[in-house]
C-alpha cells in the first residue's frame, strides 16, 4: 500500500482493519509534485498537495470554489495539514469530500505504473467501496478543466456535527456549460446524478425538493450501512441540499 499523507490509512492499520504486506512511503519521491497549477488550460493538482495547501492556493477560491469548500469542511486542521486531496480521492470513501469534488469537476487522473502512463477519466476512476481502478500505479496528477471551461461550483455536506463524517455530500460544478452533480453517500461509490443536474439547470422554475426526489428516484440507491439513517432519509437530505445549491445557482446565474 502507498503511504502519502497517511491520515486515512494509519488509523485503519492501527485498528488492524487492513494488514498490508508492505507500506511504501512516497513522500520523498521528487517527481510527485506538491504544487498546484491554475491556468486557462487546466487546474493541475500534484499528488503531494495537502488539503490545506490546495484550499489556500492562489486562485482556487475564485476559479473552483468547490475545491476550497470541500477542504474547509474536511475533518480538522491537523488532518487538513497532513492529508492530501489526491490521497482522499484515491482512498475513495463514498462520503469523503474530494472524490465528489473531483467527480463534479470532471477531472482526469494521470497515473503511471509498470505499463507506462495513462489518463483515467474521473467517471471511470471509482471501483467500489474505498476502491479505485489503479493497478500497480501511482497518481502523478489530477487535472480539472481550466478557467475557461469552468463556471459555477460548490460543495455541501450533511453530518451529525459540523466537519464530522458525512452522512451525504454533494459537489456541483459547471464544466463547458454543463452542470455536473456528484453525490456521496448514496452508494458504495460517489455518483454522478445527471437527472438532478437537469432539474438544477432548468432556470425556468425554482427547483423543489419534490423535483429532486423525482430525479433521484430514477436511479437505484444502495447506501452503505453507517447507522445514520435509512436510504429514504439520505435521499431526503440530498434533495434538501440540492434545493439549497439550486437557489445559489439561480442567484449566480441571475
Amino acid at each position: 500500500m502507498v503511504l502519502n499523507g497517511g491520515q486515512a490509512i494509519i488509523p485503519t492499520l492501527r485498528m488492524r482493519v487492513v494488514n498490508p504486506l508492505a507500506l511504501v512511503d512516497i513522500k520523498g519521491i521528487p517527481e510527485l509534485s506538491s504544487t498546484v497549477e491554475v491556468a486557462d488550460t487546466g487546474i493541475r493538482v500534484g499528488p503531494r498537495v495537502t488539503i490545506d495547501r490546495l484550499m489556500n492556493w492562489p486562485g482556487i477560491a475564485e476559479v473552483a470554489p468547490v475545491l476550497r469548500e470541500a477542504g474547509a469542511a474536511l475533518a480538522d486542521a491537523q488532518i487538513r495539514a497532513q492529508g492530501t486531496a489526491v490521497g482522499s480521492l484515491c482512498w475513495a470513501d463514498p462520503r469523503a469530500n474530494y472524490p465528489v469534488a473531483f467527480l463534479a469537476l470532471k477531472a482526469v487522473v494521470s497515473a503511471v505504473g509498470s505499463k507506462g502512463r495513462r489518463d483515467i477519466e474521473i467517471d471511470d476512476f471509482f471501483a467500489g467501496y474505498r476502491a479505485n481502478v489503479l493497478q500497480d500505479e501511482l497518481v502523478m496528477s489530477v487535472t480539472c478543466p481550466g478557467t475557461t471551461r469552468l463556471g459555477f461550483s460548490t460543495y455541501r455536506e450533511f453530518s451529525r456535527q459540523i466537519n464530522d463524517v458525512c452522512i451525504v455530500n454533494i459537489a456541483v460544478s459547471e464544466v463547458d456549460g454543463e452542470l455536473r452533480v456528484a453525490v456521496g453517500g448514496l452508494d458504495k461509490r460517489p455518483q454522478l446524478v445527471p437527472s438532478a443536474a437537469g432539474v438544477m439547470a432548468n432556470l425556468e422554475e425554482p427547483a423543489t425538493s419534490e423535483a429532486f426526489m423525482a430525479a433521484l428516484s430514477t436511479r437505484p440507491v444502495a447506501p452503505i450501512e453507517d447507522g445514520q439513517g435509512s436510504p429514504e432519509f439520505k435521499l431526503a437530505l440530498i434533495a434538501e441540499l440540492l434545493v439549497e445549491i439550486a437557489a445559489e445557482y439561480r442567484e449566480a446565474k441571475a
Partner: peptide, 21 residues
C-alpha cells in the same frame, strides 16, 4: 487530537504519523 504536535511547522496528530516518516 490529544497527541497534536508540530512537525516542520505543520500541525499534526502524532498518532497519524509513523516515526520513520
Amino acid at each position: 487530537g490529544a497527541c497534536t504536535v508540530d512537525v516542520g511547522g505543520q500541525l499534526t496528530k502524532s498518532c497519524l504519523r509513523l516515526a520513520v516518516e
